[in-house]
C-alpha cells in the first residue's frame, strides 16, 4: 500500500508540475492578449519602474508582438531592420522559443519569413516551394 501511495503521489506531483504552465492564468500570452492583435504587430510600451507588461524586459529594446494564427492559412512576416540590432523570435503558445533570426543572419535590410504548419507546407506545389529570399 505504501508503495502505491508513493507512486500515486509521484504521478500526481508530476501531473501537477506538467500542468502548471497550462493552468497559470497570468503567463506571457495571457498578459499580452488584451493589448495585441492576431496576425499583426503591436508595439509594447517600454518598461518603467511603475509598469512592465512582462518581467525582465530589456529597456534598451523596443519590442513588438504579433499573435499569429495559422488556422486560416500561412503568414508572411516582414520586419524592417534598425541600425542597431533587430531580431525576430517565434514562440509557441506556451512560451517555448523555437526559432530566432537577427538582422545580421538575415543579411538584408528587411527580415522576411514564411510561417506555416507542416500540413500547409505539404500542400504547396513543387513550383511554389519556399526558397530562401535572394538579393
Amino acid at each position: 500500500m505504501d508503495f502505491r501511495g508513493t507512486l500515486l503521489g509521484g504521478v500526481v506531483h508530476l501531473g501537477a508540475v506538467l500542468m502548471l504552465p497550462r493552468t497559470a492564468t497570468q503567463d506571457a500570452y495571457a498578459r499580452l492578449e488584451p493589448i495585441t492583435k492576431v496576425n499583426g504587430f503591436v508595439a509594447l510600451p517600454l518598461p518603467t519602474s511603475d509598469r512592465t507588461i512582462l518581467p525582465f524586459m530589456d529597456p534598451a529594446f523596443a519590442v513588438a508582438v504579433c499573435r499569429y494564427d495559422l488556422s486560416a492559412g500561412s503568414i508572411k512576416l516582414t520586419a524592417p531592420v534598425s541600425q542597431a540590432y533587430t531580431s525576430v523570435t517565434f514562440y509557441t503558445r506556451r512560451d517555448v522559443a523555437y526559432y530566432a533570426i537577427n538582422d545580421r543572419a538575415a543579411g538584408r535590410r528587411v527580415i522576411e519569413l514564411d510561417l506555416m504548419t507542416a500540413e500547409q507546407r505539404g500542400e504547396l506545389q513543387e513550383d511554389e516551394e519556399v526558397r530562401p529570399p535572394t538579393g
Partner: peptide
C-alpha cells in the same frame, strides 16, 4: 555585438 546590464527587483521590475 551588443550587450546590456540591467538592474531589477526580485520580481523583474525596474527599480525606481
Amino acid at each position: 555585438r551588443f550587450w546590456t546590464v540591467t538592474l531589477y527587483d526580485p520580481d523583474g521590475r525596474l527599480v525606481p
